[in-house]
């Protein structure tokens, strides 16, 4: 049995009223320990709701979520315990900072876990180091940090619980290219340090393709695709039809294919596209 297993999940909002909206229907997938999974879907595809089910924040109407072979919604204790084992970092997490100092804010999760004072301090240091917050910032008020530093402090707050599964919802939203890279690097650092499973939720296929082993594509409350990066990108035209943001080179490849050129639409990085296009030109010049 897989480490994290989601079976036939269904969920609707405002259940039992005329305003009922089906958010998810019959979703199943599983994630192995240590996997890096990208979760893609546009706004309203149900991905945020699905992520909140993985740490028992939202209980599915039907179906089960199993962590390490145990139903996470079995009882209150298991559900609460799951919150610490599956760390969920919300979008714009800096808007949830509240403590007097950065140190105390990062320590909030570990404190709720009822760890010893030494253990908490050690975890604060470790996670501050992973996200690249210098020690002198730890005693500052989180509200005095810059925008980028706030985001890092907030993510450190989730990492300090040392979750075995780390879920991040658009962790780089609103950041510039450097800021985006910094965030991706620290996720990688956490992964290497702990061997944790990572689920990265994003709108951007490009971001996900660069880091993930596998991609889950959500569409209209169901799982539309589940496969390796190459498998998913080989269906690029479908991704575009779903209104997802695929890399520019992928769109170009799909359009060249539509124009009748023998192009493989499964490209998602500039170097890939360059070598493919050069091959095409070479072939043409070879025959000419």
């Amino acid at each position: 049995m897989a480490f994290l297993e989601v079976k036939n999940i269904g969920y609707s909002y405002s259940k039992g009223t005329p305003f009922e909206i089906v958010a998810l229907h019959d979703c199943s997938f599983s994630v192995e320990k240590g996997e890096y999974v990208g979760v893609i879907g546009h706004t309203g595809s149900g991905k945020s709701t699905l992520m909140q089910m993985l740490n028992a924040l939202v209980k599915p109407d039907s179906g089960t979520v199993m962590l390490d072979g145990k139903d996470i919604n079995a009882d209150k204790e298991t559900a609460r315990d799951t919150r610490f084992r599956v760390g969920l970092c919300f979008q714009y997490p800096e808007y949830q900072l509240f403590e007097e100092t950065v140190r105390k804010d990062i320590a909030y999760g570990p404190t709720n876990m009822k760890l010893s004072a030494e253990e908490i301090e050690q975890r604060v240091q470790e996670s501050a180091q992973i996200v690249g917050l210098p020690p002198e910032l730890l005693d500052k008020s989180p509200f005095d940090l810059s925008g980028g530093e706030k985001r890092r402090a907030a993510i450190a707050g989730v990492m300090a619980m040392k979750p075995e599964v780390l879920i991040l919802d658009e962790p780089a939203a609103g950041l510039d290219p450097i800021g985006r890279k910094v965030i991706m690097d620290m996720i990688e650092k956490y992964r290497l340090a702990t061997g944790a499973t990572v689920l990265l939720v994003s709108h951007s296929m490009e971001t996900v393709a660069a880091v993930a082993d596998r991609i889950l594509v959500l569409n209209k409350g169901g799982i539309a695709m589940d496969g390796t990066v190459d498998e998913v990108f080989s269906r690029s035209d479908e991704l575009i039809a779903m209104g997802l943001d695929v890399p520019a080179v992928t769109r170009i490849a799909v359009r060249l294919k539509e124009k009748g050129l023998p192009v493989d639409p499964c490209v998602y990085s500039v170097p890939q596209a360059v070598s493919m296009l050069l091959k095409l030109i070479g072939k043409k010049e070879g025959t000419a």
């Binding site: 290219p177 520019a248 170009i252 500039v270 170097p271 596209a273 296009l277």
Partner: peptide
């Protein structure tokens, strides 16, 4: 700290 758009990078390469 800025990127060049993909299309520009592609043509440059």
């Amino acid at each position: 700290g800025l990127d060049v758009p993909e299309v520009a990078r592609l043509t440059a390469m």
